[in-house]
Design a protein around this nucleic acid. Structure first.
Lengths: 224, 224
DNA sequence: TGTACATCAGTGAACGCGCGTTCACTGATGTAC
DNA sequence: TGTACATCAGTGAACGCGCGTTCACTGATGTAC
């Protein structure tokens, strides 16, 4: 994911295929290992699709290093796990911002953010599971409240909803609460599709269109 | 949960407080242990709120029996775990049926079923997690498709939606797909409330009312 | 330019833990005679 | 009514596993003199 940091002079620098030998970092470059650990953990998460596969030993062996080395950069497994999560949060909200970028119409902005949210979830199911579906006692406190709200983009959504209400495109109501409901709707869609992949759901695109009609465009008149 | 089966003559029969000693079952009553195991597992699930607490050893000790005894009635941990789940499915759909029982108006029926669904989820968060949020590879095949659909009550919801459409109370659309969307909406609400209990959500009742307005009652006109 | 030395990136071996599962067994219970 | 015996509900001890984490260590790298 992250490109190899510049200055990695050694020849056999961590090839993802043969993670057997790893060249020791040079004097000031101890942090190189930290990045490699995070990258390997990320890769393991994607490949196995199971957060449980991120054991200290598995990660160490994926990097080509012994387990104790992990502790040079992380205080323990939990710390490492959340360092990985940290990146996912940024990705999700960045994906939504990118999708809405440059669009003026507030309803269309909402639609695009919703689509991006669903797409992120379906394309990174295990990331989404860690972010949004984890047991709360396995989620650190700093990943709640404002952090969570900004990741889901609640303020932005509420602002677009307000604009839509101003323009008479959406019935007047508490924009923040409506934003939460929209969040719950897309979350329900993503998490159910992730957890029950064998259930004969309609295709995601069709579902999302229908959801959009039922919650946003459908207001004020029957669906087509 | 289940009452002690009749004929349990022994004096110190499994008191939930002091599960130390357990009287051996009489000759034909080997199945008594099976029930006690299931009850203990259920109790552990509720008390700890963590499915991971249901280890063979923990359950055995809760019953007052040694670990190998479990294998007299279950082929392994997985088998036992899903035997416990089996009961939750029945509970969820029974709760919804009870809530809608005797109500004629289809929209009101939908509302009551939705409320019951949310209530079940919030009152039994760990049950709900096992039922609906588990990794698919940790859920047995027999818990998908028709089973899942009937637990969520999709057919009944679709029927009520059809009736509501007939009566002009809801815009015409594919009732089964709309039922799936309503399922996703309540699921999103329940699962997010469960996974992020510290997030400053509005109170569940208010959320559900708003959700109901946005999806069902809100169609055809602005919310109050 | 050469050498002693501090620093720093890691290693190797081991710890204790709880887990699911197995196997050979025991001892109370009921039944056949 | 009394006794040998088959049955059945469990037990006790142990297995191998992967885990997170620790501790004392090594050996290459750069720096001071």
């Amino acid at each position: 994911m992250t490109p190899t940091p510049a200055g990695a002079t050694p020849v056999a620098a961590s090839r993802p295929d043969a993670p057997q030998r790893r060249s020791r970092a040079r004097r000031g470059e101890g942090d190189r290992l930290r990045e490699e650990i995070l990258a390997a953990a990320e890769r393991l998460l994607v490949e196995t699709g199971d957060e449980a596969a991120l054991s200290i030993r598995a990660i160490a062996s994926a990097v080509g290093v012994t387990p104790p080395s992990i502790y040079l950069h992380f205080t323990g497994r939990t710390d490492l796990l959340f360092a990985v999560c940290e990146r996912h949060w940024a990705q999700l909200s960045a994906a939504m911002d990118a999708a809405a970028g440059g669009v003026e119409d507030p309803v269309e902005r909402l639609r695009r953010r919703g689509e991006a949210y669903v797409r992120f979830g379906l394309e990174h199911p295990e990331h989404y599971r860690v972010l949004m579906m984890r047991r709360p006692d396995q989620t650190p406190d700093r990943f709640t409240d404002e952090r969570l709200a900004s990741t889901a983009g609640l303020e932005v959504v509420a602002a677009d909803l307000s604009a839509a209400m101003e323009a008479g495109r959406f019935p007047r109501q508490d924009p923040m609460e409506a934003a939460v409901l929209l969040w719950m709707a897309v979350h329900g869609m993503v998490s159910l599709l992730i957890s029950k992949p064998d259930f004969p759901f309609p295709p995601p695109k069709q579902l999302f269109d229908h959801l959009y009609r039922m919650t946003l465009a459908g207001f004020g008149g029957p669906a087509s």
